[in-house]
Structures are given as C-alpha cells and as structure tokens.
Simulated scan of single mutants.
Amino acid sequence: MPTVTAPVDRQTIHQLFEGRHTTHLFSEGTVDLELIQQAYEDARWAPTSMNCQPMRLTVLEPGERRDAVVGHLKGDNGEKTSAAPISVVLAYDPNWHEHMPTLYPQMDGLREKFAPRVEFREKMGRDNAYLQAGYFILALRAVGLDVGPMGGLDPEGVDTEVHAETGWKTLMVLNLGHGPSSDEAAQYPRGERFEFDQASQVL
C-alpha cells in the first residue's frame, strides 16, 4: 500500500506564506549564523533540474566587505543593507556541471557533455538558482527569520567584491533579521495577489 504524506498544518503554512511579509528594516539584534546554516540544510533537499544545485551563498556580516558590496546596490537598497543585522549575497556557480558526477551519478558523462555548452549552463544555472532562492527564503522564514530580498544592484560590481576567486555570479541580496523595526517603512502595504482562477487554467 503506498505511503500517503500527511499535509502540513495550516498554521505552519500561514507562517511561511500569507502570515509573513517582505521586510526592509529590521528590529535591533543579531542573527545567529547557525540559523542561516540550518535554513540551507533544509532547503538543499528541494528539487532542481538533474539535482544540479547551482545556488551559492556569501554571508556578509556588518563590516568592510559588506560596505564594499553596498556601493553596488541601487537606490535605497544600500541603506537598507547597511542597517540589516546580516546579509546574504545569493549567486549561482556557472561551473555547476563540474559536480555532476557526485550530484547525478546515475548518468555518466554529464560533466563532459555540459562543459562546452556555456550558454546552456548559464541559463540552467540561473534558472535553478532562482528556484533554490525561493526554497531558501521559505526555509529562512521557517527558522524564524524575516527576509528582505533585493534585486536592485550591479551584479558585476558585487562579483568584483566577493566572487573574484570563486567565479560565482550574483543574482540578489537577502537582508535578514528578527522582525521588522517600528519604522513605517519597514514593511510596505501588502499588494494584491491573483486568485487561482485568475492565474490558472484547468484543461
């Protein structure tokens, strides 16, 4: 008889989705690095294409390295990042194919097959890292953190500051903390969401 997975309780679903809100300014206090590590440990089990797992993380605590990254953020994103307890540069590894013998051993020769296909690897890496970013944000919420994802930045500039040795490519910055500050700008009014009937078709 097949095993039937029990649904997650609605309170937990609420905590991950409707009950949480993108946060721009955080309350005072530090973030334990172990929470970020735990969120990654949980999120890494979610599916990616051929288990390629291209997402990479650079954790930035307040200091010179984060200040250097702030200079490549657009608009008020730099100010938000400077004020955050901790930040994560979320990137992808364009050379994710090098790990395929370990990540997808059931199919031989994938590393060699993908090696010359640079444009394909770039697209697959970006697409799947964005997919992993969604998992990671939910995992961060699950461990009790509030998240402020930001894409307004110069990715090449950020890469010069933190990815010169790894070759990783920046996608976004996630600012993390415990709850919003009392500032009215900490969380914007929630925008509308499409209903199922507006965003789907059943054929």
Rank of each mutant, 00 (worst) to 15 (best):
E119M: 04
A142H: 05
G71A: 08
F114Q: 10
L57M: 10
D108L: 10
P94M: 12
D146R: 03
V59S: 07
N77A: 05
N51A: 07
R56H: 06
M50T: 11
L57R: 03
V89Y: 03
M150S: 08
N128V: 00
W96K: 09
V69M: 07
A133V: 14
F114H: 10
K113R: 09
V69E: 04
D154K: 03
G148D: 07
L57A: 01
T58M: 12
I86P: 08
A129R: 09
W96I: 00
C52V: 02
Y92A: 03
P149F: 08
V69C: 01
Y135M: 11
M107G: 14
G125P: 00
T81D: 06
R111E: 13
G151Q: 10
L131S: 11
F120E: 15
R121W: 08
R141A: 04
R126A: 15
L145V: 01
L145Y: 05
P94D: 11
L73Q: 02
E79Y: 15
G148H: 02
G144D: 06
E112I: 01
A91F: 08
L131P: 07
E122K: 08
F120N: 15
L140G: 02
P155I: 00
V89E: 05
D93P: 00
Q106S: 13
V70L: 07
A84N: 06
P85K: 01
E119C: 14
G109S: 02
D146A: 05
R126T: 13
V59I: 12
M100T: 01
T81G: 00
C52Q: 04
R126V: 12
H97N: 11
P116T: 06
R65I: 12
V118C: 09
Y92C: 08
N51L: 06
G151C: 11
T81I: 04
V89T: 00
T102P: 09
D146Y: 05
E122I: 09
L138E: 13
E61L: 11
A139K: 10
N51F: 02
G75R: 15
K123D: 14
P101N: 09
M124F: 00
P101M: 07
E79S: 10
G144L: 10
A84S: 10
V147I: 09
K80P: 01
M100R: 03
K80G: 02
V70Y: 01
D76R: 10
T48M: 03
G152Q: 08
R121S: 06
E112D: 14
G63K: 05
N95R: 15
Q106L: 15
E79V: 07
M50P: 05
L60T: 03
G125C: 00
R65E: 02
D93L: 07
D108G: 13
Y104T: 06
F114C: 05
M100Y: 04
V69P: 05
E98R: 06
A91K: 03
G152T: 05
N128P: 00
I137K: 00
M124E: 02
R111H: 09
T102Y: 15
R56F: 08
E61G: 13
R121M: 10
R56E: 08
E61K: 06
V143K: 01
G75K: 15
L57I: 13
S82W: 12
M150C: 07
E79K: 15
Q106N: 14
H97R: 14
L140P: 06
